[in-house]
Every structure is written in structure tokens, then in C-alpha cells.
Design a binder for these strands. Structure first.
Lengths: 257, 257
DNA sequence: CGTTGCGTTGAGTACCATCAACTGGGGTGG
DNA sequence: CCACCCCAGTTGATGGTACTCAACGCAACG
């Protein structure tokens, strides 16, 4: 991420729902690196460029820690993370917070959004981030006109469910070191699919508090476990970057066997 | 459940894919109590009865503990539990097993089945059970012809996701007594929707081993926690039947606050 | 009447939480 | 420039929750 927010903590917006054919290039989507790995490509360009004008979308920018969606709010839009990381979570009045899933660039907050107008979870930016709101109505209209798109949507629903099932197994049946190693490995896999890994190093902007809220542990224990990983020469985490030092051993610890 | 399997542990099948209009009444579906609460009704009767002949389906019967679907198998069918209980789970070579979700009568194993030909989980019957295999191809064909059905399908996908998110929170952030009380309350809610509760009692065929595999605990600890529930006068479990003795207090323990 | 499966109970222990103190970096303000 | 604070992370001490191992009761069953 090398772009910056001009305003002080407030979201700035770039509307694109009134675009005409000549300013297509100005749309962030035109330069989107992950467009082809998610549904955006299918929604906006697949099969016919004319489809562009049929989908209303708005890009917005938020700072780290800002809330992107608040539990229970009604919304007319589906949200895609374009740049930066975010997460989906639930929080109880007593402070307990569980992160349900990490959202990386290209991820839909949920692929079910076209059919649902409010959700039981909230979404918060982990880093400074840019995301895109796409009109749910327009997506549904596209789907009705081109039922083939359902197959593509289903792919993302399936991937979401698989991730959810894996995390369920993680929390139910695995120990702290397995969970944390597994988390790092799964993030690595997702980044690898996006070609964001060089020299066994990759961006990892999660605070230990986030890791704790994903894995169901406390930040203190996360620190200890990562400390032992470091001492055992498995990996290093510093400055928001993970460096894998011993991948096979890390897989042995965190692998699903 | 008052029907019985005639064979010794082997599945007997009732095929219905060659039915003609005059033997509709003989199909188990015609007498299905939950037909209107799931997608079967929509698939087979919604809008026009003529749709019947367009969906191939086969009913099968299994004994408790039999495997209904084995992880990784390719299948041409979506599965609906018609009668009895089942569960979706993953198991590691070392024996660790996590139950991902309970399947009650009327539940699709997963509403994503029409789009997926193999799965990362297995499905096993908890009690003697009857289920229905519906041709995935035929479901997709119906969906393509009547896109409105997607909205109904989406309802079930949304419900599945909400359940999964709740269970994630459970496993990540809640203690043993909260998890077990919550499990019982959620099962109660689902049965209530099916009107299967009388006098604060309902069928509960889960062994403590199952409760353990759902909640991420050990059977020993499940026994202790349920023992304290009993001593505190919250509930009784005996002979596969739960009796709620103090609902408000149970909600206080297991509520999501 | 032995066997088998399920649940209960006890004793000892491992894992992880909690509480607390401390470190080091980065920003802010005097 | 330095004092100060805040935040994230680390480390130690202690305790509780839940696990493991083991024994036993009990009902169902052949």
C-alpha cells in the first residue's frame, strides 16, 4: 500500500456509479490487481463490457481500525476489499471479541451479501484500506440475466465455507501452537495465490491481539507461543512482516496432518 | 421416529425417480412433515406441480452410526435429512474429531451441494435415519429455469453461515458451561421451529461424546458440566431426552448475553 | 453372566488465563 | 533535546479450566 488518505481519519469517497465509457480507465477497478481472482471481473467485464454501466459502485477509503460495517445495519451494498486488510468479527458487551475471518485484497466481505441486507457481524479495517461498495440490487439483476454467474458466485461461497470449517476444527480440536502456525500458513497460502510473497517473507499486519481474537487465545499466550517459534527457528515476525525460516517444520507443527 | 429398517445395518432404498403422476402419493415426500420448511417444497411443488417429474430423487435408510457421505467422495446428489439426526464432521488420522454441524430432519447437508461435487467433511447418521438424494444436475436445471429459487436457496445459505459464525464464537470465546448450555438452547430453538417440543422436553439423542466433539471438550468434562447443571436444577438428560427445569437460568448461563 | 457401551467420579497434570511488572519504540509537548 | 506517555510486546508468578488416566456403576444384550 503506497497510497495515502488525504483527510484526517474520515473516509473519502470516489463515486463511479455515474461513469461513462470514456472515463473507465479512471476507475480504480481498471487497475485492480485482484480483479480476475474474484467476482468483480465476472460482474463487470465478463462476457461483455457493456455490463459495466449496469453495476453501480462506490469506492471508499478508511484508516486502520475504522469500522467498515456495523452489526445489524441495513445496507444496499455488497462490500469488496480492494486494498489493505480487514476482518469480520463479533463483539460482546463484556468485551470478548472473536474474529470470524480475515479479509484480504480481493475478498468479498461475504459472497452472500447480494441476498442479505443486514448481518450479525461487524467489519473493521485492520490496515488503512480501500474497499468498494457494489449495489446488491444490481448484482442480483446481473445474476438474474446471466444465471451462469451463479456458478462463479458459488465458488466463493464454497471457499468461504471451507475456511469456516477449517477454523471450526482449529478452535475445537487443536492446541495453541497448532492454531497459530496454521493461521500463518493459511495466510501465506492466500497471499501466495495473490503472488505477494518474496523470499519467504510477506506482509503480516496482524497485532498479537488480532491473532488472539482469531485463535481464541489471549495476547499474552500468543506472545509466548510466537516466542518459542522464534527460538526454535521456525519464523520471525517483526514490523508487520513474517519471515519463514523453516517451512517444513512449521508445516509439521501447524499442518492439518 | 417410529419406522424401522428391515435389513441388518444395510441401507434399503426407495427409488422415486421413475414415478409417474399417479403414484405421487406413495412418495415419502408427499407425507413429509418438514417439506415446507426447507427447499424440497420449493424444488418440487413451488409454482407448478409439473416440476415434480423434473427432479430425480432417491430415498435411503441408514442405521445409527452409519456413514452417509465420506470426505472426498464425488457425488451427483445433494442430500437432505428426512427423518432422524445426522452430523457433518471432520476426523484426523490421530482420532481427533470435530462435529461441524448437526443435521436435523429437513436440513440439507449443505445448501451449497448443487454446486459442489465433493466435500472436505464426512456425514454420519446419529440415529437411525432416512435421507433423500436429489440430483444436483436437476436442481441446477431448476434454478436456471426459475432464478427466483435462488432467493430461497440463499436463505438456507445465510442460515448455515449464521450457525457457523455462532459456533466459531462459541469455540473461541466461551467456557465449557456456556458452550454446552448454548448448544442445548440452540437445538431447542431448532426443534421448536419444527414443533417437536412438549412440556419443556425434547428428543436429544446426542451421546456425551458427540457433545464433546461439537463443543471442543472431552467427554469426561462434558459429564462434569452436565452433572453440575443437573445439581443446579437447570435440566435433566436421560434416555435421549432433555427436560428443561429452569429455562431462564439456563439462558443466563448459555445466552449470548 | 460375561461383555460392551456409556456415563460418572477421583487424582494428578498440562495448558492456557490472569495479573502484574517491565521493555522498547514512536509520538508529543515542553 | 529530553521528559513523558502510549502502545505492543515480553516475561514472570500464580491459579483455574479443562485434559488425561484410571476405576467403577449401570443398563442392554447375546
Amino acid at each position: 500500500m503506497d497510497w495515502r488518505v488525504g483527510l484526517h481519519g474520515k473516509a473519502s469517497t470516489v463515486t463511479a456509479d455515474d461513469h461513462s465509457s470514456q472515463d473507465r480507465q479512471a476507475l480504480p477497478c481498471a487497475a485492480c490487481a485482484v480483479r480476475d481472482s474474484n467476482m468483480c471481473g465476472a460482474l463487470m467485464e465478463h462476457r461483455r463490457l457493456a455490463a459495466w454501466g449496469q453495476v453501480h459502485l462506490v469506492h471508499e477509503v478508511v484508516r486502520a481500525r475504522q469500522t467498515i460495517y456495523r452489526r445489524g445495519e441495513r445496507t444496499e451494498d455488497a462490500i469488496v476489499i480492494c486494498d489493505g486488510w480487514a476482518f469480520r468479527f463479533v463483539q460482546l458487551p463484556d468485551g470478548r471479541r472473536q474474529i470470524l475471518s480475515l479479509l484480504l485484497p480481493g475478498d468479498y466481505v461475504t459472497a452472500l451479501a447480494p441476498f442479505q441486507d443486514s448481518f450479525d457481524f461487524s467489519v473493521q479495517a485492520l490496515t488503512d484500506a480501500r474497499y468498494c461498495r457494489i449495489s446488491r440490487r444490481d448484482i442480483r439483476a446481473r445474476l438474474a440475466r446471466e444465471p451462469d454467474l451463479f456458478a462463479e458466485l458459488a465458488e466463493f461461497l464454497i471457499a468461504e465455507k471451507r475456511e469456516a470449517d477449517e477454523q471450526l476444527f482449529d478452535l475445537g480440536k487443536r492446541m495453541a501452537d497448532e492454531r497459530i502456525a496454521g493461521l500463518i500458513l493459511r495466510v501465506m497460502d492466500r497471499l501466495q495465490a495473490r503472488s505477494e510473497i518474496r523470499d519467504q517473507s510477506f506482509q503480516f499486519p496482524l497485532r498479537q491481539q488480532h491473532i488472539a481474537d482469531i485463535t481464541g487465545l489471549t495476547p499474552v499466550h500468543v506472545s509466548r507461543v510466537i516466542g518459542t517459534f522464534r527460538k526454535r527457528g521456525l519464523l520471525d515476525i517483526a514490523g508487520g512482516v513474517v519471515t519463514i525460516r523453516n517451512l517444513s517444520e512449521l508445516r509439521r507443527v501447524g499442518g492439518l496432518s
